[in-house]
Design a protein around this nucleic acid. Structure first.
Ligand SMILES: NC(=O)c1ccc[n+]([C@@H]2O[C@H](COP(=O)([O-])OP(=O)(O)OC[C@H]3O[C@@H](n4cnc5c(N)ncnc54)[C@H](O)[C@@H]3O)[C@@H](O)[C@H]2O)c1
Ligand SMILES: NC(=O)c1ccc[n+]([C@@H]2O[C@H](COP(=O)([O-])OP(=O)(O)OC[C@H]3O[C@@H](n4cnc5c(N)ncnc54)[C@H](O)[C@@H]3O)[C@@H](O)[C@H]2O)c1
Lengths: 213, 213
DNA sequence: TTGCAATTGTTATAATTTTCACATAATATA
DNA sequence: TATATTATGTGAAAATTATAACAATTGCAA
C-alpha cells in the first residue's frame, strides 16, 4: 500500500472541508471551486487543492468539484463510512454533556456506554443510557465493539482509566484531562485541551498589549 | 519591542510545560532538566530548550531549571499573571458543564457571567451564577471587564453571537461550535473542535487497517 | 472549429519548524 | 587547581509544510 504520509494539519482540514461540504449539500449546492471552499473555511485555495491531492483527483478542471461526490470521498477518507462505538468514562459534568450531545451521532459516532466508579453515579440515567460500573468496561468494550474511549474523569484518575481502556482492547483514546497520558505506541491518542486553547488566546492578547506599549 | 515571532506550536507546548511544572511544584520537586520535562510531556529535549529560548534564558548550565522560577516565567509568558474574566454564551449542556468546571479558576480564568436567549434558561442558577438574558451582554461585558467570550450555542447561532461579542468589546473568542466564524482581524479566535479530534483518530485507525491488508 | 475563460492538479519555491551537534558554563571531585 | 560530568543555549542542517505559479483540461460561445 503506497500511501504518502499525510500531514496531520491536512487531516484536520479535511475534517473541516467535510463539514463545510455537508452544509453546502444541505443547502442544495451541487458544485464548488477550491476558491469557494477556501473562502468558506478560511484557508488558501492552493491549500485546499494540495490537501485533496494527497488522496486523489476529485475535481474537474475548468469546473470544480461536485459537492456530493467530494463529500462522500472526504467521509470515506476520514473513516466515517462506518459507525464508531464510543465509551465515555467519567459521568461527571463533561461526561454527561458529551453523552447527551447529539453532535456525535451526526457524523457516525455513537456513545454506546458510559462508566463511572462512583457508586452514586452508577445506575443513573443519562439520556438513553444507564451509567455502568467501571468494572464492566472490559466486558462491555468487547461486547459493544468499542474502539474509541473517551476520558472525562478527574485529572488524577486519567492515566489509570487509560490503562484499563488499553487492557480492554480500545484502540483509540480521546482525552479531556489536561495531562500527558502514556499509552503503548499502537494506541491512537489525542487530547482536547481547553486550557491550552484559552492560554493561546491570553498569550496573544498579552503580545498585543506589549506591542502597543 | 523586539519580540521574535513565536510559533503557535511553541505556545501550545509552553502551556503544557507550565502545567507539568505546576504538578512538579505541588510534588515538591525543585529542579528539573530539559530531558525530564521532555520525558514528562512527550516531546524531545531539544524542543523544550528551543521553545524556552524564544523567551529568554531560564536555566543554569550543568544544573537545569528551578521549577518554581520557570513555572513563574511560563505563567507570565502565557499572560496568566492576571485574572481573566470570561463570559459564556449558551447555557445548554456544554455551557453548564464549563461554568461549573473548577478547572478554569485554577489557572486564572473566572467565569463572570453566563448568557442565554431562551427565556426558560434565563434566571436559572448554574453554580453561583444566574443565567442572564443575551441582551445584557454588551452592558455586563463592559461592567465585568470581560475580554474573552466563550461560545456554546447551537451551531446556527454561533456567528450571530460572535458578532454581538465583538460589538460588546470582547477581544478574544473561544468557540465550541464546529463552524468557521468570521470576525475582524483584531479579534483573537480559536475553536475547540471535538469532531476534528475524533476524526483524526478515525482517520488514523482507518490508515492502520489499510496498511495491514 | 477555434478561441476564451475557468479551474484543477502539480511542480517549483519559499517559509517554517524540528532535530542535531557542540561550544559554553556550572558543579563536583580528587 | 585541574579534570570530569552534567546540562543549557544556539547555530547549522534537515525535514516538513505552505505558497505561488503555471501547464493541462474542460466547457462554452462565437
Ligand atoms: N467540565 C468541563 O467543562 C471540562 C472542560 C474541559 C476539561 N475538563 C476535564 O474533564 C475532566 C472531568 O471534568 P468534570 O468537570 O466532568 O469533572 P467531574 O468531577 O464533574 O466528573 C468526573 C467524574 O469522573 C468520575 N471518576 C473519577 N475517577 C474515576 C475512575 N477512576 N473511573 C471512573 N470514573 C471516575 C467521578 O466519579 C465523576 O463522576 C477533568 O479532567 C477536567 O479537567 C472538564
Ligand atoms: N454538548 C457537548 O458535549 C458538546 C461538545 C462539543 C461541542 N459542542 C457544541 O457546543 C454547542 C452547544 O452544544 P450543547 O450540547 O451545549 O447544546 P444545547 O442545545 O444543550 O445548548 C445550547 C444553548 O444555547 C442557547 N442559545 C441558542 N442560541 C442562542 C443565542 N443566539 N444566544 C444565546 N443563547 C443561545 C440555547 O438556548 C441553549 O441553552 C454546539 O455547537 C455543539 O456542537 C457540544
Amino acid at each position: 500500500m503506497k500511501t504518502l504520509r499525510v500531514p496531520e494539519a491536512t487531516v484536520t482540514r479535511m475534517s473541516i472541508y467535510s463539514r463545510f461540504l455537508e452544509r453546502l449539500d444541505r443547502n442544495g449546492i451541487t458544485t464548488i471551486s477550491s476558491n469557494e471552499i477556501a473562502d468558506g473555511v478560511g484557508v488558501s485555495p492552493a491549500q485546499v487543492r494540495k490537501d485533496l491531492a494527497y488522496f486523489g483527483e476529485f475535481g474537474t478542471r475548468g469546473v470544480g468539484y461536485n459537492v456530493q461526490t467530494l463529500l462522500k470521498y472526504t467521509l470515506r477518507i476520514l473513516g466515517l463510512d462506518q459507525t464508531w462505538q464510543l465509551a465515555i468514562v467519567g459521568a461527571g459534568n463533561l461526561g454527561q454533556a458529551l453523552t447527551t450531545s447529539r453532535g456525535f451521532n451526526a457524523r457516525g459516532f455513537h456513545v454506546a456506554c458510559v462508566f463511572d466508579h462512583d457508586t452514586r453515579r452508577v445506575g443513573q440515567r443519562i439520556g438513553q443510557l444507564l451509567v455502568q460500573p467501571l468494572g464492566q468496561l472490559p466486558e462491555l468494550a468487547q461486547k459493544e465493539n468499542i474502539r474509541i474511549g473517551v476520558i472525562t474523569v478527574n485529572n488524577s484518575m486519567a492515566q489509570e482509566v487509560a490503562n484499563i481502556m488499553v487492557q480492554s482492547g480500545v484502540q483509540a483514546i480521546l482525552n479531556f484531562a489536561p495531562i500527558t497520558l502514556r499509552v503503548p505506541a499502537n494506541i491512537e491518542i489525542r487530547n482536547v485541551d481547553l486550557s491550552i486553547t484559552l492560554e493561546l488566546l491570553t498569550f496573544n492578547l498579552g503580545l498585543k498589549a506589549a506591542q502597543s506599549l
